[in-house]
């Protein structure tokens, strides 16, 4: 069984508008891959399609988590199959506390009727909140309600750390973060790096990749990957700008 998040020739659209055009990419487990690209090129669509968002229609192609197909599955089934999406704009959930929310997500991964170890849960939750420098009082805050941009992203990483997916897609996790928050969030992700997890980091800016250093960098343009390289590709892109992609790579 291949230990990877594998996307093959994926074509997807919103309404009549094709967004992903023969998109292919493989993220082996244990590696961190970054996707960079200008706005409107389909990066966030990719994240949403993988997570099973109902607004996107898939025309063809495949997406596999460790060899098991996830396309066409319900979003909750995809999540339990081991794919986690850290949202660019996480929703506010009025009246639902962070503690209850993460607990429900963990209960959903247990065998039906199995007892839930609340003591161990809180011990782990508090430890991870401490690592992310989140006030423990946040457990009783309603999910994302009234959070700053940085607090929302920390809350996403907290969920990532608690749910331990096989693969995590981080959609523009750096947007709206100041340097301190960026560092803390990156440390959280880096702490999770290891042989059991693969990461797909979607970003517009090279800045995030100073903190989460990728194994591979891919440049996305018009719904597909047009160029791949090592971590130095991010620096090259930063230096030359997206016009370089447009001139040099888009027609490759």
């Amino acid at each position: 069984m291949p230990a990877s998040l594998e996307i093959r020739n994926l074509c997807a659209s919103v309404g009549d508008r094709p967004i992903l055009k023969n998109f292919s990419l493989t993220v082996p487990k244990g590696e961190v891959h970054a996707i960079m690209g200008p706005n409107g090129t389909g990066k966030s669509t990719l994240a949403k399609v993988l997570a099973g968002h109902p607004d996107y229609a898939v025309q063809s192609g495949e997406a596999l988590v460790d060899g098991e197909t996830i396309l066409g599955l319900e979003p909750d089934v995809i999540a339990r199959a081991g794919l986690f999406l850290a949202f660019q704009y996480p929703s506010e959930i009025p009246g639902v506390t962070i503690a209850n929310f993460i607990r429900a997500a963990l209960v959903a991964r247990q065998a039906k009727g199995a007892p839930f170890d609340a003591k161990a849960y809180y011990a782990e939750l508090y430890a991870k909140m401490d690592a992310l420098k989140m006030d423990r009082k946040f457990t009783s805050r309603f999910v994302n309600e009234g959070f700053s941009g940085g607090e929302k992203k920390r809350c996403e990483i907290l969920q990532l750390m608690m749910l331990r997916p096989r693969y995590a897609v981080l959609d523009e996790t750096d947007s709206g973060l100041d340097i301190d928050a960026l560092r803390i969030v990156s440390e959280g992700v880096n702490a999770m790096r290891g042989p059991d997890t693969g990461f797909l980091v979607i970003t517009h800016y090279q800045r995030l990749l100073d903190y989460i250093v990728p194994d591979r960098v891919h440049i996305m343009w018009d719904g597909r990957i047009v160029h791949s390289g090592g971590k130095e590709l991010a620096l090259e892109l930063e230096e030359k700008g997206y016009d370089w992609v447009k001139k040099e790579l888009a027609h490759a």
């Binding site: 319900e74 929703s91 993460i102 429900a104 959903a108 969920q159």
Partner: peptide, 13 residues
């Protein structure tokens, strides 16, 4: 969708 994306099944969500 946010709740579903965390693996919480539809009725529980």
């Amino acid at each position: 969708f946010y709740l579903l994306s965390r693996g919480i099944p539809l009725p529980a969500a």
